[in-house]
């Protein structure tokens, strides 16, 4: 057991080291625009535009459920318009970034890990190196850049859709007027809420794509290794999302008031 703990610790530190090295390499390779430029749009389309439906679906149901949950939780002692406050704050600052990030970790992280892992086990990555292409600039930089740009886009749309779904649910399913919901939504609203959610989403995008790329590049063996890499990418991305969520909360929310 002691040996197992030691092995896991070594692998974790080695993984963080390789991921850090890879992110640093991707930043350094961002100067090589001619290498990653032609692939950036494709990756953004795949990661971002392709992920919009799942993000919208998650946000839609989240908004509805939050409105119903708030209505259920608030007794007569609490004004009903606070349903709007709870939906706005929760969707924008927490649920839209985290749930969308987790969904994209499964979709995007696994996709990247499987794609690059397959390239690794079929020696396409080695072929790139043989052709004097930097695999980091060719494979990792456009993906991390796509995650950095498109995660906030998807999460931003999810925020607005979640808020709108909560608004419609409050009017349609609850005995709440549009004015009441908007009063609650505006009650403690600050543009910081949007900024906070988008910055978190960008950090999640970098984490998910970097972990996916690292898992793919470290793939060993055949198809089994690719599957393991995809699984590792999803699990690590999900954990990293939760860790980053707590990190941003401590950094930005601790000691801050509306």
């Amino acid at each position: 057991m002691v040996e197992g703990v030691g092995r896991y610790a070594r692998e974790a530190v080695a993984g963080m080291g390789s991921a850090g090295r890879m992110v640093f390499g991707a930043v350094r390779a961002s100067r090589d625009v001619r290498t990653w430029g032609p692939h950036a749009t494709e990756q953004m389309m795949k990661l971002g535009v392709g992920s919009l439906p799942i993000g919208i679906l998650i946000a839609c149901f989240t908004g509805i459920v939050l409105a119903l949950l708030a209505s259920y939780a608030f007794t007569n002692a609490v004004p009903r318009y606070l349903v709007g406050t709870l939906v706005q704050k929760t969707v924008m600052m927490e649920l839209a970034p985290v749930l969308t990030g987790l969904a994209l970790a499964g979709r995007v992280g696994a996709n990247i890990a499987a794609e690059i892992g397959t390239m690794r086990v079929t020696e396409q990555v080695d072929a790139l190196e043989t052709l004097a292409y930097d695999p980091i600039a060719y494979l990792v930089t456009p993906r991390i850049l796509a995650g950095l740009v498109m995660f906030p886009v998807v999460v931003g749309v999810a925020m607005m859709v979640g808020l709108g779904a909560g608004w419609l649910a409050s009017m349609g399913l609850l005995d709440l007027s549009s004015e009441q919901f908007l009063k609650g939504a505006r009650f403690f609203f600050s543009e910081f809420d949007v900024r906070y959610g988008l910055v978190k989403a960008a950090s999640f995008g970098v984490a998910v794509t970097a972990v996916g790329c690292a898992a793919g590049l470290e793939t060993r063996g055949g198809a089994e290794g690719v599957g393991a890499a995809a699984t590792r990418a999803v699990v690590t991305s999900a954990v990293l999302i939760l860790v980053l969520d707590a990190f941003w909360a401590v950094v930005w929310l601790l000691g801050r008031s509306v």
Partner: peptide, 12 residues
């Protein structure tokens, strides 16, 4: 892609 990004920004 540009349309998606611009529309999303405008919406936000």
């Amino acid at each position: 892609l540009g349309l998606t990004i611009l529309l999303s920004l405008a919406l936000i």
